[in-house]
């Protein structure tokens, strides 16, 4: 029973990962992006859990719980920590026409499919087939990093990129050692905290964190 549905479950999880990444490019509101990020964390945790069950490794179950708590709950909470009222009003004005950005998302996904199939070969396993999605997420994360103006939205792009790396490693190697994942997650948490403090400082100093306006720092 599980064997027949395993590829579908993997597909569903990776599909959710891709969908949330695409939706993050689509939506302007910061709050929506953070919620989508949380959803993405949950999908990633579910993906790890499914792989764990399929391969019978209880260790992966632990990793899944870790991911759920860090990426699904922890990071989004930190990002949304600031008072809800102000965060709701933050609407991202992108550098890229949203329609063009969405078309770029599709092209990036195709590119990652082509690259993975040409360079590594898709392999026969369903996890191997889904691996391009990890690369696509990395590329979409980059796109977000490039196209967003606000520091915090760029942070989200960075996290999508990180999720993409994690997805790729899980799908290609069937899991990384728990310690490594733990370390990576901690790393990310650290970066987020630092950046958060940093943006907080910047806000108090400059009244905003739109990167375009930060030229002053440079001059």
């Amino acid at each position: 029973m599980f064997e027949t549905f395993f590829p579908q479950l993997i597909g569903l999880c990776t599909g959710a990962l891709l969908l949330t990444s695409a939706l993050m490019v689509w939506r302007h509101s910061l709050l929506a992006s953070i919620r989508l990020l949380a959803l993405q964390g949950v999908a990633l945790a579910a993906l790890v859990a499914v792989i764990g069950i399929a391969e019978g490794e209880s260790e992966l179950g632990l990793v899944s719980l870790l991911i759920l708590s860090v990426k699904g709950i922890g990071l989004p909470w930190v990002l949304a920590y600031q008072s809800k009222a102000s965060i709701k009003q933050i609407q991202e004005s992108t550098r890229l026409n949203p329609t063009a950005a969405l078309l770029a998302v599709t092209l990036l996904s195709i590119l990652s499919y082509v690259v993975v199939s040409r360079v590594f070969g898709l392999g026969d396993s369903s996890t191997g087939h889904a691996a391009p999605i990890g690369l696509a997420m990395v590329l979409i994360g980059f796109l977000l990093l490039i196209s967003r103006r606000r520091a915090r939205s760029q942070l989200i792009g960075f996290l999508v990129l990180d999720n993409g790396i994690a997805t790729t490693t899980f799908l290609t190697s069937g899991g990384v050692p728990i310690l490594l994942e733990f370390a990576v997650s901690l790393d990310v948490l650290l970066v987020v905290l630092i950046l958060h403090v940093f943006t907080g400082r910047m806000r108090t100093k400059f009244g905003g964190t739109a990167v375009d306006q930060l030229r002053e720092l440079h001059d």
Partner: peptide, 12 residues
């Protein structure tokens, strides 16, 4: 974009 992703995903 979603529809397009669906098509390419189903191909690949």
């Amino acid at each position: 974009a979603l529809a397009f992703l669906a098509v390419t995903a189903s191909y690949l």
